[in-house]
């Protein structure tokens, strides 16, 4: 099976998993949206099939630039919600400010609109509906690009799994499929637990994104458990953290990842054309 390669997005947000100094270097390197666009375009030209994106303000800026200057088409794997920003904003100014911030960011409704009132009413009665309404607002800037799947952030997925909450998962799947007309997916750092829970709940996700790498980093609880789960899971599996943010060698990663027949795509967090090319050659 030929794996699709998907461009990761953390490097564009000044994130590095191995060092904060490197993270700051990346932040400088990608301080202009044009430099992000340049790497994404180079990835497309090499044959990368898609890109991970989230509702981070920086990614929305990139998206607007992409729409205005579009010279190529790409599938996007949209990660929701924007957990880091929500926690920071709620910590600073409370939940009310957080809600208003999301609404303002989307620019699609105002405080007097029916959608806003329905959102406020839902806060008082049905929490999942409230979360799904927020989700709809959050993904609204992405309505005119090709979203391959909507991926629930690993923090949300893993909280739901650990607390054994079936109802939010059922409603998320139904809402994303019927209301947003997208394919629902999940990101998890606990693939074995996800498989056990989903089988018990009778749920088959379209896409699951999870860390897969030669050192077993974030393949929990054991690398061997996750390997078995990958081989026996009937879903589209997307491998992430394959290089451990740069901690593992390309040779080790290549021989490990190529062992699996059931991985559909790999996320590559490249920040230069050279990185893009090196990874593309290793996996194609």
């Amino acid at each position: 099976m030929i794996m699709d390669l998907i461009l990761g997005h953390n490097q564009f947000l000044g994130i590095s998993h191995i060092s904060e100094d490197k993270a700051r270097d990346r932040e400088k390197k990608f301080s202009k949206i044009e430099s992000i666009y340049h790497i994404v375009e180079a990835a497309h030209d090499l044959g990368y099939k898609g890109m991970v994106i989230e509702t981070h303000p920086r990614m929305i800026e990139f998206l607007n630039y992409y729409k205005e200057n579009r010279t190529f088409d790409l599938d996007f794997y949209l990660q929701v919600p924007y957990i880091h920003g929500y926690i920071q904003r709620a910590n600073e100014n409370g939940i009310g400010d957080l809600l208003l911030g999301i609404i303002n960011q989307t620019g699609v409704i105002d405080a007097g609109s029916i959608a806003f009132r329905s959102l406020i009413n839902s806060v008082k009665s049905d929490y999942i509906s409230m979360a799904l309404n927020l989700l709809k607002l959050e993904v609204s800037p992405f309505s005119d690009i090709n979203i391959k799947t909507l991926l629930l952030h690993n923090v949300m997925t893993d909280v739901i799994l650990s607390l054994d909450m079936i109802e939010p998962v059922r409603q998320y799947l139904e809402y994303v499929t019927d209301e947003l007309d997208m394919k629902p997916g999940f990101i998890t750092l606990n693939l074995s637990l996800l498989k056990i829970r989903f089988e018990r709940w009778g749920i088959s996700p379209s896409y699951v994104m999870t860390p897969i790498n030669p050192k077993g980093y974030d393949m929990n609880p054991l690398q061997s458990d996750v390997e078995r789960a990958i081989e026996s899971f009937d879903t589209n599996i997307i491998a992430m953290n394959i290089f451990g943010g740069g901690a593992f060698s390309i040779e080790d990663v290549q021989s490990y990842i190529n062992r699996f027949k059931n991985i559909n795509a790999c996320v590559i967090g490249a920040s230069s054309e050279e990185n893009l090319k090196e990874s593309f050659e290793a996996f194609s």
Partner: peptide, 14 residues
């Protein structure tokens, strides 16, 4: 790196 040193976590949430 932490990726070299950390493995076999029963459940990873945060």
């Amino acid at each position: 790196y932490k990726q070299d040193l950390t493995k076999n976590i029963a459940i990873n949430i945060g």
